[in-house]
Every structure is written in structure tokens, then in C-alpha cells.
Design a protein around this nucleic acid. Structure first.
Length: 682
DNA sequence: ATCCCGTGAGTT
DNA sequence: AACTCACGGGAT
């Protein structure tokens, strides 16, 4: 190692340079690998709060510049190429350069930068966003945006970090942040969508990358679950499933591709939402009606649902820790039971998950609104979030005192997750740091190479080994049903721009596009006036509220019109989310302009008959600029095409999870007490 | 918050 | 075919 020594703190928090044990305040966290560094031993510590938040250690800076120059690649297993060493201290990176490389990492535009003028791309997006939509910490477009009740938008990570430092007020305006929001911030999905729209619309005019991934919200529901004769009084609770619309086998692994979607010919795209489990089932994403795991113990698990049923679950978006099933007394007529009364074992569904782990199969992941402890859960219903791989599994003592099976899921999908505004899917990422591993029992890791793997040449995840042959017959959908569904779907596809805006940015009260949006602490968006109107005449405080010093005046509970959260405090001082407002306005304007450009053509398209629409979605894309392209997303079917073999011989290296791997940058900035094993120093 | 149903897939 | 098991969901 050359020149100045740069080393982080070790497992015990001891600085490896000066051997002191710095306090939390004296330590700095690398934004990328979440390692801790003693500020006093840094040659050039960050000067401002904003810099602190985005600070990256020397290893990671070097790494990102290697990425940018195309010299570094990730191995399929997710392991970082080892020859990357701490570089000579002052990597001579200016703040600008840091920002640039960070942004390149974020947007995946690394190697497209200066050539072909694509470097301007990000700048253009900023322009569209009027430069106004910035997280105050990192001065970037907010990643996983959360909105404070005072109407300011931040990256989830930056916000969590801020709260983690004991801050109780908004970093922008010093308004108090409600404790509930502080402890459980929810991503503002309307804002995510707005950012994506801005990117896409920019992209379409600037000739950027052509393949933008689709983001779907509610599908049409051409057929719903039905109530059988027998259960006539029980309504939907005991309904039987409606038709299955896709033609995949029940033990199909991976995304649902377009060729198995005769209804829409697009497959199930990331971000697809459903009302309930039966509907989710109809699209072939997760077949069981109640169970959270779909799988067979001798074959593998195809999908899971995160529904908050198990308190041990821990959700970090791109990765999460899942708890196995069982361990509960379901005798009598219980279907679920939150309390555990015996140990879980690796059998049945838990064994199925383990098989998927060992084989490296892609596992579809669905998140439910019932998971209240996750920032990534949808507001209502269920949402398909793409495929993940189970990198390892083990047992631990659960929070309820019995053993639970544990699974580390890491996202590996070719489409971006619903909470990011990235325009690309996942790249292989390192294992996150998992404190509970130090107490893990029966730890299992994959031995061979995974079946579902990132292909560097194609920059896509694919089957590197053939997908396991189905053991079930493939369901075929009823042609009549398909035709009906198809019509409804085409109609939805031809929605006007305004209808689209409406769908994404509608006020939950007036159902119109929000004029002056306010965001509640529970992350629901309304027009300011609508929300005011909804509570007009209601007093905030009961009785003796008058003279400013009423001692025990009782606050009235005022429930959010969209959920049970008490938003009385929020209502007292409604603040417009000006950034979101501006964004909606500019999208509106832009959409109208494009509407006019396409003029007569466009009107025709809206009234277009089903038959003409049959011509395909490509055509729709051209008439509808804001419609993201769905073409090109159907090629998830490389299974048996022959070139699989070639890829296989490249390496069969075992997957190890110790030492060498860097930690994931998606790790939450949380207390850092128990660092079981630091992935450093090796 | 609690009760308890019909359902459907896995397993025997 | 019988039996077990399951992170739903409407009704009370």
C-alpha cells in the first residue's frame, strides 16, 4: 500500500489507523459500502452535512471510477473483482467528479457519459424537474422519495440518516417531523412516478436510451373471483379464484413473459398491482390463496409474498430478510396465527425456499399493503416487485423465542424496482451486512453457480442453466375470456394523457389531478383545498382549547381520508408540496404540447377500434409519448435456446459469502452496534 | 380486534 | 381421495 494509509474501523469499531475507538459522532459512514471510518484519520474529511451524507470511502470511489472507465466488471456471483485496492490517498477527485460518478452509478449511465452527448441526459432530466426537485442533503433528485408533512422531499436514505442522528425537524424548514413518519417513512409513490414520467418524456424527445421499462399500476380486471353457491353468504372472503389469465405452469419460475400472456401480450411487469390475493393469483404471479410461499419441497419455491405476517421480516427494498412458515398452532379453524409456539424447520415450504436458494432460481416477490413496517410496501393491495434470488438461508432464534428459518433475498430483475426512478434493472450487488448471522444456525449457501445469473455481455439477468422443467401441466386460458380481457386492456392502453395523469396524481378526495398537492405523514396525496374541506368546521381541540395554555385540552382525532392515521397535527398547518406541484404542472404542459403535435392522429387513436389496436403496442407508443415502451421486455425466455451452454463453462466458482464481498449500498443507515463480521481487511 | 369461513396446493 | 397446511378477508 502506498503513501497515506486509509483504513476503516474494524469489527469492534477500532480505527485501524490510530487504534482508537471513535464515538459515533467521530465516525463517518461510506455511502456505498457502509463501512465506518474515523474522521480524524481521514486526509480530507467532508466539510458539509451534504457531503457527509454522500461520502464514499476511497475503495468505493476507486471502484466507481473503474466502472466509469469500463475497467471493472462484476462477477456474476456478486463478488467484486478483488484487485481493487485502496488507492493512493488523494484520488484527486473534485467534488464535482464525485457527484458525477455518484450520479453515473445511480443512473447506470456510467459508460455512456461523454460520448454521443448522452452525458447531457441527466442534466436534461434535472432541467425538466426545473432543478427544483432536490433532496436537500445530497442535492440530487430524491431516490425513493419521502415527503415530510411540511412538503419537502428527501431521499429515503438521507431522511433515515437524518433521523438517525436524532434530528426531529425538517432539514429544510425546521418544522417538526411527526414521530410516526420519522420511525416509519413511506415512499411517496406519486413522486416516484412523476420522476419517471419526467425522465421518460425527456428521453423520448432527446433520443436517449430506447428501452425504458414499463411501470404499471392497476391492471384491468376483466374477470374477478367468484362466490360459489356454497359460500354465497360469505362474499369475497371465501371466494373461489377467477380465471387464470396467463399460460404459465404453476411451478413456473421467474418473470411471467409476454408469450404466456395472451390477454395483453406483455407479460406481468414489475409494478403490477392487484386488489387481493386471488387477483394476484389470476396473473400467475403467486398461486396460493393464503400461503405466503409458493413452492414444492422437492423442487423449489417460485414466489413469496411479504405481508407482515411474521415479525422477524426485515425489508430493505432491493434486499430483505424473509421468515419461513410454520411454527404456529393453526388448529381449529385458524388460517393464520401471529404467535409462534414451536420451532420452524427446513421442511415443506421452507425446504422449497431452500432449494431455490441452493439452485439460484429466480423467486418472484409480491409486497402487500399489510406489511406496515416496510417503507416499500404498497399503499393498498398487492404489488409485483420483480424477481429476487435467495443468496443464503439459516435459522435463528425468532423474536418470539422460537427458531425461525431465515432467507436473504436479493433483487435480480431486469426491470427497475417500483420505488426507484432508475431506468434500468438490477446489477449484481454485494451481500448486505447481516448482524444476526453471528448467531445463525444451520447456515446454508449455494455451492454451485446459480441458475439465474447476470450476463455481462447482455447486461441482463438470464437463465444460465436451463430453468427446471415443469412438473405440472400448463394451464391454458379460456379463449372467450381472453378476448374480453383483451378489449378492456386495449381500451386502457389508449387512455388519454390526462387520464394517465389522473390515475397517478389524482387527489384521493376529488379524484381530479391534484392542483396544490399536500402529502400526509402517511404518504397520501390530496389537494390542499380538498383536505381542508374534508375537515371544515371540525375543531382540532376539544373544549378549553382557547387560551394558549390549556393544560390538558384533548386533541381531536382526525383520520386521514385514505387510512386510519391520525393527521390532526398535519391538518393544522397544511403545506403544499411545491416540488410535486411543479412537476405535475410541467408534465401536464408537456403532455398537452405533445398532444397537439400528434394532433388529428392522436384523437383518432383514442377512438380507435379494437381491431386496429391489434396492430400492437408499438404503434401505441408512437401515438402516446408518455406511454413507456413495453417492447423488448418479452425476451425473458433464453432457457433452452442453446447458447446457454456457452455461458456455463465460464466459471463454476463456488459462491462464498465471507470476507471478500463488499457490503451493499442499499443498507439502511441504522445503529451500528453489532457488526458480526466486517467484510473488510481481507 | 376477533371470529371463522371456503379455498387450493402440497403431501400422504 | 383424504388429509394437512396456509403471511385472507368479510362479518361481527
Amino acid at each position: 500500500m502506498a503513501g497515506v494509509t486509509h483504513l476503516p474501523c474494524d469489527t469492534l469499531g477500532v480505527c485501524m489507523v490510530c487504534k482508537a475507538t471513535p464515538s459515533d459522532e467521530e465516525k463517518l459512514t461510506c455511502k456505498t459500502c457502509v463501512s465506518y471510518w474515523h474522521v480524524a484519520c481521514l486526509s480530507s474529511p467532508p466539510a458539509t452535512m451534504a457531503e457527509t451524507v454522500v461520502w464514499r470511502c476511497f475503495d468505493c470511489l476507486e471502484l466507481s471510477s473503474l466502472y466509469a472507465s469500463g475497467k471493472a466488471v462484476l462477477k456474476g456471483s456478486g463478488e467484486l473483482i478483488p484487485e481493487i485496492k485502496p488507492i493512493a490517498a488523494d484520488a484527486s477527485l473534485t467534488e464535482q467528479a464525485k457527484d458525477k460518478s455518484r450520479q453515473e452509478l445511480l443512473t447506470g449511465k456510467a459508460d455512456a457519459s461523454n460520448e454521443e452527448g448522452k452525458g447531457e441526459w441527466n442534466k436534461d432530466v434535472f432541467d425538466i424537474l426545473s432543478g427544483s426537485l432536490n433532496c436537500s442533503f445530497c442535492i440530487q433528485i430524491p431516490e425513493r422519495p419521502v415527503t415530510t408533512p411540511c412538503g419537502h422531499n428527501f431521499c429515503l436514505k438521507c431522511f433515515v440518516k437524518w433521523i438517525g442522528q436524532g434530528k426531529k425537524t425538517c432539514a429544510n424548514c425546521r418544522s417538526i417531523i411527526p414521530p410516526k413518519m420519522a420511525s416509519q417513512p413511506r415512499i411517496n409513490s406519486a413522486l416516484v412516478f412523476a420522476i419517471r414520467m419526467a425522465k421518460i418524456s425527456k428521453n423520448n424527445t432527446a433520443g436517449g436510451p430506447s428501452r425504458i421499462c414499463h411501470f404499471v399500476h392497476n391492471q384491468d380486471r376483466p374477470d374477478t373471483a367468484y362466490t360459489t353457491e356454497r359460500a354465497i353468504r360469505k362474499g369475497k372472503a371465501n371466494a373461489a379464484s377467477g380465471k387464470i389469465f396467463v399460460t404459465v405452469a404453476q411451478d413456473h419460475f421467474g418473470p411471467i413473459p409476454a408469450e404466456n400472456d395472451p390477454v395483453r401480450n406483455q407479460g406481468v411487469l414489475v409494478g403490477a398491482c392487484w386488489e387481493d390475493r386471488l387477483e394476484c393469483r389470476q396473473w400467475g404471479v403467486h398461486f396460493p390463496h393464503v400461503s405466503g410461499i409458493a413452492g414444492q419441497s422437492n423442487y423449489g419455491a417460485q414466489s413469496v409474498v411479504l405481508s407482515g405476517g411474521y415479525v422477524d421480516d426485515e425489508d430493505h427494498g432491493e434486499w430483505f430478510l424473509y421468515t419461513g412458515s410454520g411454527g404456529r398452532d393453526l388448529s381449529g379453524n385458524k388460517r393464520t396465527n401471529k404467535t409462534q409456539s414451536f420451532d420452524q424447520k427446513f421442511e415443506k415450504y421452507n425446504l422449497a425456499l431452500k432449494v431455490s436458494c441452493m439452485k439460484g432460481y429466480p423467486v418472484r416477490v409480491v409486497r402487500s399493503h399489510k406489511e406496515k413496517r416496510s417503507s416499500y410496501a404498497p399503499e393498498k393491495g398487492l404489488r409485483y416487485d420483480g424477481v429476487y434470488r435467495i443468496e443464503m438461508c439459516w435459522q435463528k432464534e425468532g423474536l418470539q423465542g422460537f427458531k425461525v428459518c431465515r432467507y436473504l433475498f436479493i433483487r435480480c430483475d431486469n426491470e427497475p424496482a417500483p420505488w426507484t426512478s432508475d431506468d434500468h434493472g438490477d446489477r449484481p450487488r454485494p451481500l448486505p451486512q447481516i448482524p444476526e448471522l453471528k448467531d445463525a444456525v444451520a447456515l446454508c449457501e449455494r455451492k454451485g453457480s446459480p441458475s439465474w445469473e447476470f450476463d455481462e455481455e447482455d447486461s441482463r439477468w438470464k437463465w444460465k442453466k436451463p430453468a427446471p422443467p415443469s412438473q405440472k401441466h400448463t394451464k391454458s386460458a379460456d379463449p372467450n375470456e381472453i378476448e374480453g380481457a383483451r378489449r378492456a386492456f386495449r381500451k386502457a392502453q389508449n387512455m388519454s394523457v390526462r387520464a394517465r395523469l389522473l390515475r397517478e396524481f389524482s387527489c384521493l378526495i376529488c379524484t381530479q389531478v391534484m392542483v396544490s398537492p399536500v402529502t400526509s405523514p402517511c404518504a397520501h396525496n390530496f389537494c390542499k383545498s380538498c383536505l381542508e374541506g374534508a375537515f371544515a368546521g371540525q375543531a382540532f381541540v376539544r373544549d378549553r382549547s382557547r387560551g394558549g395554555r390549556s393544560l390538558r385540552s384533548q386533541k381531536n382525532v382526525m383520520k386521514c381520508p385514505a387510512c386510519p392515521t391520525d393527521i390532526a397535527d398535519f391538518l393544522q398547518n397544511l403545506r403544499v408540496n411545491t416540488e410535486l406541484k411543479g412537476l405535475i404542472e410541467s408534465l401536464k404542459t408537456k403532455a398537452e404540447e405533445e398532444n397537439e403535435d400528434a394532433s388529428g392522429n392522436k384523437d383518432g387513436a383514442e377512438e380507435e377500434s379494437d381491431e386496429t389496436a391489434e396492430a400492437g403496442k408499438d404503434e401505441e407508443n408512437s401515438t402516446e409519448k408518455l406511454n413507456d415502451s413495453s417492447a423488448g421486455e418479452s425476451d425473458v425466455k433464453e432457457q433452452k435456446s442453446g447458447e446457454v451452454e456457452v455461458a456455463n463453462e465460464v466459471e463454476d466458482a463456488d459462491v462464498k459469502c465471507d470476507g471478500k464481498r463488499k457490503r451493499d449500498d442499499t443498507e439502511e443507515l441504522v445503529p451500528k452496534k453489532e457488526d458480526s463480521k466486517k467484510a473488510r481487511g481481507g
